[in-house]
Amino acid sequence: MKRTNEQQSLRCQVEKWLSPGPTVLVRVIEFSRTQLGRRRYVCVETVQPAGLRALFFFRHDDGCWRVFPPAVDKPTMTPARHAA
C-alpha cells in the first residue's frame, strides 16, 4: 500500500504513535530545527492514565513527518569534480 502525504502528516503520526483519545490533551512542547541539516522537528506529549508520553517527529524532504530523523546530506567526492 502506497502512503500519501496525508497519512504522513504530523496529526496522523501523533495519532498513530501516541494514540490520544478524544479527551486526552496533546501538547507541542518543543519545535525548532536540527543543527545538522536545519531540518524541522517537533516534540509532542500526551498525559494519559498510564503516564506522560512524548515523541519527537521529524519533517522529511518529501513533506512527511516521521519518528526518525532524515539522513543528513554528506559531501561526496566524485571523479568529475577532481579531474584535472
Rank of each mutant, 00 (worst) to 15 (best):
P69S: 11
Q48M: 13
I29W: 02
I29E: 04
F31T: 05
T76I: 12
V67M: 05
A50L: 03
S9T: 04
A84D: 03
E15L: 14
T46M: 03
R40C: 00
A83P: 02
H60N: 09
V67D: 12
R27N: 14
Y41E: 01
T4Q: 09
V44H: 06
Q13K: 14
F57Y: 07
L55V: 07
Q35V: 08
C43Q: 13
E15K: 14
L10W: 07
A50T: 10
V72N: 14
F31Y: 04
E6F: 11
R53T: 08
V24A: 03
K74R: 15
A54E: 13
E6S: 14
A50M: 02
R11G: 08
S19A: 08
V42K: 05
K74M: 14
S32E: 05
T78E: 12
V28D: 00
A71E: 15
E30P: 00
Q8V: 07
P22G: 06
R40E: 10
T46H: 05
R66Q: 12
L55A: 13
F68T: 15
E30W: 01
T34N: 01
P20Y: 08
G51M: 15
L18H: 04
A80W: 06
R66T: 03
E30N: 00
R3G: 01
L25I: 05
P22K: 10
K16M: 09
F57T: 01
T4R: 10
S9D: 05
L36V: 08
K2N: 06
R53V: 03
P20H: 06
R66C: 03
R38V: 00
T34M: 01
F57L: 05
A71W: 11
G51L: 13
Q35W: 09
